[in-house]
Design a protein around this nucleic acid. Structure first.
Lengths: 334, 334
DNA sequence: CACTTTTTTGCAAAAGCGTGCAACCGACAT
DNA sequence: ATGTCGGTTGCACGCTTTTGCAAAAAAGTG
């Protein structure tokens, strides 16, 4: 066995010549301890290398300070950016982040949430995946607060953070129209997540409203390779589109690369492209992609603010954030 | 107060008509319980929605099952890829990952490690930052196992995972020579991490050994923008280099973009470029970058294998992994 | 100095779990 | 019938902390 010999509050108390409770109070903000006692305790703690045991503390308080981040595709630019903001802000709020990756297998989120419950996480933030309604129920029943980002389940007691995907998609139609595009198209993946579908809906309806021709193609998983495949399918038609809105920047990067290097189509000369997320690569000069910015810091700060604010006015709450269009060079005539 | 009312083992025991120990043993793998008792307990647990309290369990066992991941620049492609592998493998090993992001401020890693100790983490994996020797000592003193990735501190009781950076850098010199490059250069950041410096050393010494001209430039933080600035500095010289090894793929992407779009230099026609990490973008056709692959799955699996294998034969251990050269189109004549 | 008020301190209970020890139960051999 | 043995089960204690309560100490007041 690993001889892990932690020093306990008792040992500190003995060395400092005070009671165990005095030690406890010293490390509890807002507790009543005299300056002298605190000094003696701190000194002893330092000498012995004492650290509060958050496990025991959480056990007592029924509040672990742990927030569970349940996320699939961590290695994706948008997700990892959001992850960074969330962990940083949670740390500043005195919480600690427990990271659970879910692959695309079915029971994956389920297992993750059970794990979270076993560690008595105060809350879970779900960045992805398809959480079963029953599982979310389970979370809530065990007193866990739930933040759902870019999902549209209607669960009481949760915070929902969404974007104005549909309206945003409408705005890009206007941009394409102003650039003189005739035949629009939407490039989507087969993931079918609420935000992707909302963008598709918004784009198609806005295009139709303007009387423009519009087509939709879906393929594979939401990544660079799918973007390439979509380009191959859409750009080999006899009447190929000249304004393509990709559901995601990653799709857009793949699409643009295939268009330029495989079909020698100039962007934005012969083809306008827009994406969504404003990942770092969108600003790289090889792409210079016009896209919608995910308000990652706003998302993260709303989420942790809601978690930190423990007033149980919790009833279902829903926040809608605005996705700002970032003009770059992949659409003619900014 | 959030009325968090968890169901305890006692309640399950009452409902199942057994003692609390029976419940405990049911959820402890390898404990002695009859099939009948286990069934009754499981049934009651299911009905009541019972979940083992890992906080209390960790308190008893002095083993929390928590592994702390201390990482800076989470949103970076290489880091997030490694993060994904680590969390996935830790989960499969029955551990859980606690993520601590460190910004580049000084006391940041320090605070992170203290947090880890307070939660009685079984181990910490440090992907970055500059952990003070004294802090590492603190970790070890509190029985925490430590994995250091791409660092060169020599601490007993830790696992060090490194790459053959220096040799790899030597191999790319050969590649440049074969491509007919005359004037080599190394593009580095000012971060000064052990692996970056090892690549620089390896490249310079190998080039000199072949009697080739070689220069070094360092600028800023290890990212895309620094790559662009480095390109501006190096490509405006009267005698500009024709073979540039960038310390990192991100630097290389910035470098290539500036070279092509700002200076209209063709890659690999007039300029050969190589990078390091093999991030996803390196394979995108806009870059098609020849680079060294970080063996992320090997790194992750070595790390968690060492952690899972609790034999305390721990004495300082050091693993050196091989970085394979991935040939793509940014160097002439594959 | 005596009295009241406030602050500080120690005690003991509580939280939920694991586990050594002893008791117990049924089966089997003598 | 008695002894033995392997497997189960319950009891009680241990882990580390927080916190209500009451005692003690300190401070303030007349």
């Amino acid at each position: 066995m690993s001889a892990r010999d932690f020093v306990s509050a008792q040992e500190v108390a003995d060395r400092a010549g005070v009671s165990r409770s005095a030690v406890s109070r010293t490390f509890t903000p807002g507790a009543s301890v005299s300056a002298e006692t605190r000094r003696r305790v701190m000194e002893a703690a330092e000498a012995l290398g004492y650290h509060v045991n958050e496990l025991a503390r959480g056990l007592m308080r029924n509040e672990s300070g742990i927030v569970c981040l349940i996320v699939s595709d961590v290695a994706t630019p948008y997700r990892s950016a959001l992850l960074r903001e969330l962990t940083l802000m949670l740390q500043n709020a005195g919480k600690v982040a427990m990271l659970i990756s879910t692959d695309r297998s079915d029971g994956s989120v389920d297992r993750a949430l059970r794990q979270a419950i076993r560690y008595r996480a105060d809350a879970s933030i779900i960045l992805s995946g398809m959480p079963d309604k029953s599982i979310a129920q389970l979370c809530l029943r065990s007193g866990q607060r739930l933040v759902l980002i870019n999902r549209d389940d209607e669960q009481p007691g949760t915070l929902q953070i969404n974007l104005d995907d549909q309206e945003a998609a409408g705005r890009v139609v206007t941009a394409f129209a102003r650039a003189g595009c005739q035949r629009l198209a939407f490039a989507n993946s087969e993931a079918g997540t609420p935000s992707l579908m909302a963008r598709e809906r918004g784009f198609v309806t806005a295009a139709r409203a303007l009387g423009m021709e519009v087509s939709v193609e879906r393929y594979g998983w939401t990544g660079y390779d799918a973007g390439r495949v979509l380009a191959q399918r859409m750009l080999t038609r006899t009447q190929r589109p000249d304004g393509v809105f990709c559901a995601t920047d990653l799709l857009a990067c793949g699409f643009m690369d295939a268009a330029r290097h495989q079909f020698s189509i100039s962007v934005p000369g012969q083809l306008c492209v827009a994406g969504f997320d404003d990942i770092e690569q969108a600003s790289w000069s090889s792409y210079d992609l016009t896209t919608f910015a995910q308000p990652v810091v706003a998302i993260a700060s709303k989420a942790v603010a809601w978690l930190a604010n423990m007033t149980p006015d919790d009833g279902e709450q829903s926040i809608r954030l605005h996705a700002e269009l970032v003009w770059r060079g992949s659409i003619r005539g900014g």
